[in-house]
Each structure stands twice: as C-alpha cells, then as structure tokens.
Design a binder for these strands. Structure first.
Lengths: 227, 227
DNA sequence: AAGTGGTCTAGACCACCTT
DNA sequence: AGGTGGTCTAGACCACTTA
C-alpha cells in the first residue's frame, strides 16, 4: 500500500486523517447518522486501519461522531440542536475565561485587543472572512491566555475548529460583524474595569448572538447546505 | 503473550487499561510529570501497544495525561491549579445546564430532587460517603437531563469520575455537606421559580464552594496524600 | 551514529448480526 | 453457520534524542 496524497503536510497520519474527515463531514459528504466503516476509509485514504481508528477517537472527542465499542462510528447529526449545544458550551467556557481574565488583564493586552478589533472590523467590511476570523480568534485568545486554564482552552479549541469550518461555508452578515465589534468594545471596557461578572455576562451574550446569527444564515433559503 | 488478569470484566481492552491507569495515576503511583512508556506498559498489562495508545488517548481527553506526537505521554500534574481548573470548568458547565433546566423543570423533578437531597444529607451525616456521593450525583443528574445537551454532559461526566476518585480519598467535612444541602435547596427554589440566571449563579457558587472544600482538605497536614 | 521509543502496517482474531 | 466489520498482535519503520 503506497502513498496517496495524504502523506505531506501534517504531523502524524492520524492527525491528517482527522483533518480530512472533519472537513468532509462538515461539508456534508457523509449523511448524518451514516456508518463510517474503517476498512473502507482505510482504502480511501491509503493508510492502514489503526490510524483511522485514532482519527475517529479524536473526532469523537470533538463531538462530530459517535463511537460505540464493537459497533463502529456514526456521523453525529449536525443539526440545529447540535450547534446550539456547541455554542452554549462555548459561551459558558468563554464566560469563565473572561471572568478570570478580568482580574489579570493589563494595559498591554487591552491596547492590543483594541487594535485587533479594529482590524477585525475592517477585514469584515471588506468581506475578507478568512482574515476576519483570524483577527477574531486572536482577539479572544489574548484574554484566554490570561486565564491560565489549559483544560478549558482545549475545550474551546476543539469547538473553534468546527465552528470556523461552518463559518467558512456560510459566512456572516456585515451587520453581525459590526455588532460583534461593538460587543468586543464592551468586553474591553468591562475587562479594563476588572469587572469579572460583567465580562462573563458580555462574553456569554456575545456567543449567544453569534449562535443566532449562524443559525439564521443556515436557515436562509439560499444557504450553502440544508440544515 | 498470554493473559494477565486484565482480560475479564470490561468491554474492550483499551477501556480496561484506561480504567486501571486512571486509578493508578490518581492513587499517585506515577510521579507527576513522569513519562509513561508504551512498551513498558504493554508488558506491564500484558497487551500489545495499540490498546495502550488508545487508552492514553482516552485519558488525555479526561485531562489526566498530556500526549505529544512522537513524544509520548506524561502524567499531568495533579496539583492545586489543575483541580481549580477542573472545578471551574465544571462550574461553568453546571451553570449552563441549570440555566437551561430552569425553563423546563416540572413538579415531578422538583419533588424527586427534594427527596434525594434529604437522603444525601442523611447519608453524609452518617459518614456514608459512597451513598452520599451517589445521591449527590443523582440529584444533579435529574436537572442535567432536562438541559438536553449531551455534549455538555459528556464534559461533566469526564470530570465527575476524576473528582469522585479524589473525594473518595479525602472525604469531606460534615459541615460542608450541610452547607451543600442548603445550596441544593436554594437551587431547587430558583428552579421552581424558573429563574435561570439565579439557578446558574447558585450552581456556579455551589461548585466553587466544593472546590474550596476539597482544596482545604488536601492541604490539611494529615491529608491522605501530599498535593 | 546509534539508541530509544512512538507510529504504522498487515493480518489474525473475535463480537455481533443475518440467514 | 457464515459474513461483516471492529479490535488486537507482532514487528517493521521512522522521528527524536544522546553522544
């Protein structure tokens, strides 16, 4: 069994398989609830079965598939409820992180955040989503780092990749990005005042609004994919 | 390579290896930061290397070990900060779940919860920790089920096992259990009034108090294990 | 430059489901 | 009983580290 285009660019084979599979699942190539057969995928990707299994376990951790012992893997249904659950979790964790960040934030971070938020707004206005998503992530990461909770960060990271992938498919409205930038400014203000409760509240609301926006866009008639 | 006492009682080999390893790590058999060598454990448990790897990945999901590609596994340091992080995450997620539960709770759950809380208090007063922990879990699970968010539940479950394990080592003070029962009553009240914000706040505070109690007990001179 | 140890392969084994 | 497909084994391969 020789190479198949999957061999370059990643760290380990199972990580690359996981990346590819995640992309394909979110792109809707597999029907929800569809059984993912290891032998089949082993041939499809040109690797043996063990790396496939490890990739599947990774994706199970992300919530994308369901794995039952001796039964195999099924694609988790990516429906409205699933996305709501993901966003709700993200909101709760972001609230926690921002709460923690409030008591540790300094001038440097606040200034950097303000700059990033400006770049975010500009990129979004120009329709440069890739750059906007990147600025947004860096904005949030600035404060996440302060919370010093790698376990929580791992949860956020897992969900972030998934949601980024969907955002890239559906985009977001310019009005929503303007709104988001405003929420970012509120967040900066609360953090500057070291008001953890308020920062957490804003972060939760911010996530909630993002959730509503994505759901609305996915339900639009011309959406890239039926929910 | 023949059997080694690990063969009976579980579902798959890697699940059994994970159970055993988790127990041993929390019991302090491995030094924190210690490198876990796959070949060594393969011999130790009498199974080949792949199931060991899968068990390690499982434990990584639980936050107990750190796994680096091509570098192997290390035991995560079970120190004060680690526990704080775990409890903080749990608090955030429980807050979310209780918030959701508040809008869906009915008479039946409220009554059942009050009963369970009574049993919890009684068991704790008698020093029957195993039973107390069980009642406590069932109390919380009653409301968690209402939130209808299996992804969040999975996070809670992962952490619960870990914390239960530590609680079993260190116990908790009778005064803390009385306090906890009181917090449970506050929670029931908030839920009965369908006040999601308040329920979330109480849940977060409840988790915070539990965290403080465990940390205090672990720091006592006669604690079962040095932190 | 060799050694250590993590990762991957091929195929055997075995659980579960269908006939 | 036979088939399908998930799980495990033994060992080759290869990345990373020591000297």
């Amino acid at each position: 069994m020789r190479d198949s285009g999957l061999n370059l660019g990643g760290d380990t084979i199972y990580a690359r398989v996981a990346d590819k599979l995640r992309e394909e699942i979110l792109a809707g190539i597999f029907a929800t609830g569809e059984r993912l057969k290891i032998a089949e995928m082993s041939e499809r990707y040109g690797v043996s079965m063990m790396p496939i299994r490890e990739a599947l376990q990774l994706l199970q951790g992300e919530g994308l598939i369901v794995l039952e012992p001796n039964k195999g893997a099924r694609v988790r249904q990516i429906d409205r409820r699933f996305l709501e659950n993901m966003y709700d979790i993200r909101g709760a964790i972001e609230g926690l992180l921002m709460h923690k960040a409030a008591s540790r934030v300094g001038e440097g971070e606040l200034r950097a955040a303000a700059t990033l938020n400006g770049e975010y707004e500009a990129a979004a206005r120009l329709g440069n989503w890739k750059r906007a998503l990147d600025c947004n992530k860096r904005f949030h990461s600035l404060f996440f780092a302060l919370a010093d909770n790698p376990e929580a960060l791992a949860i956020i990271d897992r969900h972030w990749g998934l949601i980024d992938c969907l955002r890239r498919q559906f985009g977001f409205g310019v009005d929503r990005t303007a709104e988001a930038a405003g929420e970012h400014r509120q967040l900066i203000k609360a953090l500057a005042e070291h008001d953890g409760e308020q920062a957490a509240r804003i972060a939760r609301r911010h996530t909630l609004a993002a959730k509503e926006d994505l759901l609305a866009r996915m339900q639009e008639p011309g959406a890239a994919r039926k929910q």
